[in-house]
Amino acid sequence: MPTLNSASCPAPASNSLLQGVLWDMDGTLLDTEPYWMAAEGELVAEFGGSWSDDDALALVGNALPDSALVLQRAGVKLSEREIIDRLTTRVMEGINQHIEWRPGALELLEELHQAGIVCGLVTMSESAMATQILARLPKKYFAFQVTGDQVSNGKPHPEPYLVGLKKLAELVPDLDVTRVVGLEDSFPGISSAAAAGLKAVLIPHIAAVPESANWHLVESLTQVNVETLCTLTGIGAS
């Protein structure tokens, strides 16, 4: 079971209305979507198929097995495992050349860290990739990670965030899901967070996401801090 390291992760803050924040990775924490889209296009082209920007945008936020199935239908004659490995390798090559954190992400992580609010990662990327990316952060901001290869049902199913809440409950006494925020950039992701009962906050990026009463919208993480997260989501409102 994941545990907090007091030297690198904050202890739960008993005086905070906000009890935890669960973060998506691709497109929310850092900008990997162009790498994924390029990798998909290259793979389809290798097998003589065509792949449009709209095709790529339709996969943003999807579970990797679901994306692999779409690519197979587009003519990629590889197994699901082979497709996932090829895509992940190509994306990591791009990240190793240049990593771009989303605007405001590092600043918000640091503020949450200083406030003692536990953060967890909930991503459809696989564990090996997520671990490499988190190692690039200036501090160990995340107490745990939930990855696509650790769940049976990927986003938009609520399972990834339900697993995240279970891990968070091991670290935060008397956890109240209505005091936990989920940060997402895609329709599958925000749907997953909302379905799990979190206060879901959408920070749109590449793919369009419809408005909904099930989530809250901010244009950029540069507009967000602990106080505004509580105000936006109604955490602590009487």
Rank of each mutant, 00 (worst) to 15 (best):
S152P: 10
E126F: 12
A105Y: 00
M129W: 12
E107R: 08
V163T: 11
V76Y: 04
L134V: 01
G94Y: 01
A130M: 06
L134Y: 04
R102S: 09
D53Q: 10
P158R: 08
E93G: 02
A135V: 04
T89W: 11
S52C: 03
T88V: 10
A58R: 07
D55F: 01
K167M: 15
L134T: 02
P65A: 07
D66E: 14
L162G: 07
V70F: 06
I99W: 03
E110G: 03
I99C: 15
I99L: 15
P65Y: 04
V60K: 00
I117M: 09
C119Y: 00
M124F: 00
A115D: 10
A56W: 01
V118A: 01
V70Q: 09
N96M: 13
I95F: 00
A68M: 13
L137D: 12
M92V: 08
V122R: 06
V146F: 03
G104S: 02
V151R: 06
V146N: 07
I99F: 01
D55T: 12
L168E: 04
L137P: 02
L59M: 11
A130H: 07
A63S: 15
G94I: 02
I84C: 00
I133Y: 05
E80G: 02
L137E: 13
L64A: 05
K77E: 15
E126T: 09
E93A: 10
L106H: 04
L64I: 04
R73Y: 05
V151A: 01
P158I: 00
V151T: 11
E159P: 11
A128V: 09
T88F: 08
A135D: 14
E80K: 07
S52H: 00
E82R: 09
G61R: 00
L134K: 02
M92P: 07
A63N: 12
L162H: 10
P138A: 10
W101N: 03
G94C: 03
E110Y: 01
F144Y: 12
E111T: 08
T147S: 14
P160I: 04
L108A: 13
L168I: 13
K166W: 06
D54K: 14
T131V: 11
K166N: 13
M124D: 10
F142Y: 09
A135N: 11
Q114N: 04
R73V: 13
A63G: 08
K166A: 15
E159M: 03
A105V: 06
E126H: 15
